[in-house]
């Protein structure tokens, strides 16, 4: 299960200046929302959510943030990388009329989810928000799927200014959804949780991000208060029943040493 696989990068797609999708030709068999631990065995190892997964290949979409991702960005097709996984909980594939809300570089995992939901026959509305037009990713991919797709930026360069939460608010008022999936920055997701308090009957699932080391439920770095569940095993996808109990959500997370860092 923890078997590590080392293989060449098949293709790298530049989504924008700081976001790239790395493709590998390998059957991963991951479910939407799951992640892999990717490493060059030199600079580090980090978790990345699966943004695409078909029978012959899979992709992870990576934002350049620190020294490790910087090293990844120097890789070219044919260069070797090593991964283990896929790990973690996955999005349920449920709902007939479904709203998906993404923010920034956390949106791509919703693309894989969308494809699986469409296969299951669901009607989808996808909201993709980012700070600027350049930071909106996967627009073309979403546009090519048969779903209702809306984009928005903080700056308003696409005609309206605001966040994906603003659009979600309007959509929730005007439509009847039976499932909501969210993947975005934590403060955006907290705003979604607050918004969804107005819909007590509506089920939802969020994709969480925490500092992970072992990714197999042993080291305890990614436990979340007050439940103590591990986001690498019981997460990274959590459903409403768990999310409403989280006190740490949107308040703080713990760094590599386990010290609380407040948002």
């Amino acid at each position: 299960m923890l078997k590590r696989i080392t293989l060449p990068v098949a293709e790298i797609v530049n989504e924008n200046e700081t976001i790239r999708t790395f493709y590998f030709e390998k059957k991963l068999g991951a479910l939407p929302g799951q992640f892999i631990m990717l490493s060059d065995l030199v600079t580090g190892e980090k978790p990345f959510s699966i943004s695409e997964c078909e029978s012959g290949y899979f992709g992870v979409t990576i934002k350049k943030l620190g020294t490790f991702t910087q090293a990844l960005f120097e890789k070219k097709p044919g260069d070797l990388l090593s991964y283990r996984g896929a790990y973690g909980s996955s999005f349920s594939i449920s709902g007939r009329n479904v709203l998906l809300v993404g923010g920034g570089y956390a949106t791509p995992p919703l693309y894989y989810l969308s494809k699986e939901l469409l296969k299951a026959g669901a009607e989808l509305t996808v909201v993709n928000g980012a700070r600027s037009k350049k930071e909106l990713v996967f627009c073309e991919r979403f546009s090519n799927l048969s779903l209702s797709y809306q984009r928005i930026t903080d700056a308003g360069c696409l005609g309206r200014a605001g966040s994906s939460v603003d659009i979600a608010q309007v959509l929730l008022e005007e439509n009847h959804y039976d499932m909501v999936y969210v993947s975005g920055p934590e403060l955006m997701m907290r705003a979604m949780r607050n918004l969804l308090q107005n819909y007590p009957e509506l089920n939802y699932e969020f994709l969480f991000e925490r500092y992970m080391k072992c990714a197999i439920g042993i080291c305890g770095n990614c436990t979340i208060d007050p439940l103590g569940i591990r986001l690498c095993v019981e997460g990274p996808v959590l459903a409403r029943d768990k999310i409403v109990q989280l006190t740490e959500f949107g308040e703080y997370h713990r760094n590599a040493a386990g010290i609380k860092e407040y948002f």
Partner: peptide
């Protein structure tokens, strides 16, 4: 030591 015991809630979850 070293397993799960980093956070108070991780301790709680293990005990539960």
């Amino acid at each position: 030591a070293g397993i799960m015991g980093m956070t108070w809630s991780g301790m709680k979850y293990t005990w539960e």
